Simulated assay, not measured.
Amino acid sequence: MARPREFEFEEALQKATEVFWSLGYGGASVDELIKGTGLARGSLYKAFGDKRTLFLMVMDRYVDQRLRLYSKGLFQRPGPIKEAIRQTMLDHVKRATGPGTERGCLVTNTATEIGVRDPDVALLLARMFRRMEELFAEAIARGKAAGEIAASKDERAIARFLVLTTQGVRVMSHMRPDRQQLVQAVEMAVSLLS
């Protein structure tokens, strides 16, 4: 019979996420991860391997959560798809500028800290941005089919621009958290759908 784990795997992964999110990859030492997760050193290594492997697991989980939010926002809202796109992007602004958002977005933080220096992290981030683009493009295609969005619009080009806008919102929210300016950027981006 297998011995039960002495800790909850998902709970420890969430606690590790908080450490990486607060300190960044470089600032999150193994000692900080031990303190943050409450795991003994041996348990941490046994469950997750090394720091880099744990970080990749954290990022993979976070990316999946974010993509589910986008999918839900774009395809489970009642009403016109154009408004669903607008509200999904405004939700993004709210998450970037609301209370408790000082530490920013884990994806944006990782992209600026590690970027392409780690090929596995770069692949993971590229997968997220590609999937976001696909979700926006699918939403735009639905809007075109419903007659809400002009058939002449290039859904891939606009979708790519919407992804760039959402990521720009995240970066700018670190430097100039004027929510109204970010909302104006979203409204400008959504105006391309008209």
Rank of each mutant, 00 (worst) to 15 (best):
M1K: 12
P4Q: 09
R5W: 08
R5M: 13
E8A: 08
F9N: 04
E10A: 14
E10N: 13
Q14P: 00
Q14T: 09
Q14H: 12
F20P: 01
W21K: 06
W21D: 10
L23E: 10
G27L: 02
V30Q: 04
L33V: 07
I34F: 00
I34P: 00
K35R: 15
R41W: 10
R41C: 04
G42E: 08
F48A: 04
F48D: 06
F48H: 06
G49D: 06
K51A: 05
R52K: 15
L56W: 10
D60M: 02
R61P: 00
R66F: 09
L69K: 09
Y70R: 01
Y70H: 10
S71Q: 13
L74D: 00
R77I: 07
I81C: 06
R86H: 12
Q87P: 00
T88C: 07
H92M: 01
T97V: 12
P99Q: 10
G100N: 12
T101S: 15
C105K: 08
L106S: 04
T108R: 07
T108K: 04
T108G: 10
T112I: 14
V116T: 14
A122N: 08
L123D: 12
L123F: 13
L125G: 00
L125V: 04
A126R: 04
A126H: 02
R130A: 14
R130T: 13
E133P: 03
A139S: 01
I140T: 05
A141Q: 11
A141L: 11
G147V: 03
G147C: 08
G147N: 05
I149F: 05
A151F: 11
S152R: 14
E155S: 07
F161K: 01
L164N: 12
G168I: 10
M175I: 15
R176F: 08
R176I: 11
P177M: 08
D178N: 15
Q180C: 03
E187I: 08
E187A: 08
